[in-house]
Structure formats: structure tokens, C-alpha cells
């Protein structure tokens, strides 16, 4: 099997991020959690906490991560962590952060405690959007991490507003009445967050971990609300093998389905530009949720997916001041 990446380049990332040094740090998210084998979300959490050099407090919206990382008496977290309902991870953390600021003023708390919220796409794009929007608008000093697996995986793969165009889910099934799967394109949440005028919004991927770690470190140095959206492959919902979450993340970046960029005080920068932009079908082909699109009758839908990806990518390049391709 081909590796799909350049070993030399990754070894360069390793030196940049001081990976060996990071391996000496205590892991703040432990083994023994009950996420499915091959899930992307624990890797997202692990990388975020690895890149956090400060004491941290986390809140977690209901979702796969929440229900399987803390099952009565067994918690995988080694930092103070609170389970919130589906809709209020950002609101709960806003409260904790406000309390912290009040206690800090009285000298009852150490400085530089970081507040991190975790939510899946259901808890972030849909159900938790209003509380997240409120927290961003009130300018709480917190980092919100969305692990986006593109559906309500925890409850059995129902469509969310993050589900990509054409995907088959249990509530957007591809069948005789609707052969194309989900007929609406996904919501561009990273831009919606950036539109709040927050100091930092970014998109990241576990496959490009040097970029991801750099973004988390950068976010922690900025005061105010920050948002990072991370692609998190789900082999159950995407209908793939358990061993390819990193490969699929890499393909998502290389096909520009999941472009890596950051918006800092309104300025957009594309942080990873693939050497060669690959057709989005390469990302979709290994996934059973797109299987129905690879028949002649659905060629139009496949073309529409590619069009959406291209349009978004050209817009990103334009806004980052780079010449469109």
C-alpha cells in the first residue's frame, strides 16, 4: 500500500513541533475511553491538549466524545471537565470563564488558565449554534473546538447541517425516491464564526498535525473567543475501514474538500496549499456514504459536489490574496 505522504516532510514537521519533546508530556486524555476503534475524535482531543502548555478547563457538548469519554466513574480526562447538554457547551464555559475572571481579580486563582470547549458538528453547527454565537459575541476568552464528522454519529448517523452534499445518512437516505443522498450543501461554519468578528477562526485536520498544533498554540496566545473546526473521520458513519481516518483526513485536505486556513482579525490565510489539487472523488470513493454517487445516473450530483468544492477553494484563494487557479 502506498503511504500517501512524504516521510521527509513529516519528519520536518516533527522537528518543527518538537514531537519528541511532546511525547514526554503527560497525556491528558487517557486510554480506556470507549470511542470506537479508529475514531478521529480522540486524536483531535489528544492533539489539542498536547498543544496546550497551560492549565486547562474543558466543557463538552453531548456527542460521541462526551458519552464515551466519561461513563460513570470512568473519565478519560485529566483536566477539569464538565459535561453539558447538547446545546450549551459554549454557554457553560462562558459562565466558568466569567467566574474565573472574577476570582482572578480577587487573587484567588492562578493566571493563564485556558478554557476549551469541545463539541461535535451536531452540537456545534446545529443545536449549540445559538449559545456558541452568544459566547463569541460576548467575547469570552475561550477556544471552541468543533470535531466535525459530518452527521449525528452518536445517535445513528442522522444528517446534520455539516453533512456533505450527496452523503447517504439515515435521514437523508439514497434510494429510489431520492437517488442522490443529501441534496443540500453543508453549512460553512468556520466562516460564520469568523463573521462574528472574533480574533481567530481556523480549520484544521489531524493529518496535518504540525499545522493543527501551531493553530492551537496560536489560539491560546490570543485573548478573546477563538474557534477551530477540525475534520474528524468516523468509520461507522462514513462507512469505511477502521484504519484510514488519517488517510481520509489527508485526502480531504489534498482534494480541497477540507481546506486548511485561518482567519485572523478578518485576514484570511490559506495555511496548507496542496501541491496538486486532486479530484474530490478520490476522497469520496473509499466511503460507503457516497457509494451511490458512483453510478452513471448520479454523475450530475458528483459533478455538483466538485463544483461546490472548487467554488469554495477559489473563493478562499481570492480572499487570501493568492491568484486563483
Amino acid at each position: 500500500m502506498e503511504l500517501g505522504y512524504d516521510v521527509k516532510e513529516l519528519l520536518k514537521w516533527s522537528a518543527e513541533t518538537k514531537l519528541r519533546q511532546l511525547s514526554r508530556k503527560e497525556e491528558l486524555f487517557t486510554h480506556g475511553h470507549r470511542m470506537c476503534a479508529g475514531c478521529g475524535a480522540p486524536t483531535v482531543v489528544k492533539m489539542v491538549l498536547m498543544a496546550t502548555d497551560y492549565p486547562a478547563v474543558a466543557s463538552n457538548a453531548t456527542g460521541c466524545l462526551e458519552v464515551s469519554s466519561c461513563i460513570q466513574e470512568f473519565t478519560a480526562w485529566k483536566i477539569p471537565w464538565i459535561h453539558t447538554a447538547f446545546e450549551n457547551a459554549a454557554a457553560t464555559l462562558s459562565g466558568a470563564e466569567t467566574m474565573y475572571r472574577a476570582l482572578l481579580k480577587k487573587g484567588k486563582m492562578p493566571e493563564n488558565v485556558k478554557f476549551i470547549a469541545f463539541g461535535g458538528d451536531g452540537g456545534t453547527y446545529d443545536i449549540g449554534l445559538q449559545s456558541l454565537s452568544g459566547a463569541m459575541e460576548r467575547r469570552h476568552d475561550m477556544l471552541y473546538i468543533c470535531y466535525d464528522n459530518g452527521a449525528y454519529m452518536n445517535t445513528g448517523i442522522q444528517r446534520s447541517s455539516a453533512t456533505p452534499l450527496g452523503a447517504d445518512t439515515t435521514t437523508s437516505p439514497a434510494g429510489s425516491a431520492n437517488p442522490a443522498g443529501k441534496v443540500q450543501p453543508r453549512k460553512d461554519l468556520t466562516r460564520i464564526m469568523a463573521a462574528h468578528g472574533i480574533p481567530y477562526a481556523a480549520q484544521a485536520s489531524i493529518s496535518h498535525w504540525a499545522d493543527f498544533i501551531r493553530k492551537v498554540r496560536k489560539a491560546h496566545e490570543i485573548k478573546g473567543p477563538k474557534f477551530i473546526n477540525v475534520l474528524s473521520p468516523c468509520n461507522r458513519g462514513w462507512r469505511t475501514a477502521t484504519d484510514n481516518s488519517v488517510q481520509l483526513s489527508r485526502l480531504a485536505v489534498e482534494t480541497c474538500y477540507w481546506p486548511l486556513y485561518e482567519i485572523e482579525d478578518g485576514k484570511l490565510t490559506v495555511t496548507v496549499k496542496p501541491a496538486q489539487k486532486r479530484p474530490v472523488a478520490e476522497f469520496m470513493k473509499p466511503q460507503g456514504r457516497f457509494k451511490h454517487l458512483f453510478v452513471p445516473e448520479n454523475a450530475g450530483m458528483l459533478a455538483r459536489v466538485q463544483e461546490e468544492v472548487d467554488r469554495n477553494w477559489q473563493r478562499l484563494l481570492r480572499e487570501s490574496g493568492e491568484a486563483a487557479e
Binding site: 475511553h33 473519565t75 485529566k78
Partner: peptide, 19 residues
């Protein structure tokens, strides 16, 4: 016998659960 509020006081106790 549980701690009120379903609070887990032992950080990283998932280590006791073998997967």
C-alpha cells in the same frame, strides 16, 4: 454510593477500563 452530582473525582480513571 456515588458522589452527588455524578462527579468523578479521580482524573483519568478510564485507565481502569480495559478496551
Amino acid at each position: 454510593e456515588l458522589v452527588p452530582g455524578a462527579v468523578v473525582l479521580e482524573a483519568g480513571s478510564a485507565e481502569k477500563f480495559k478496551t
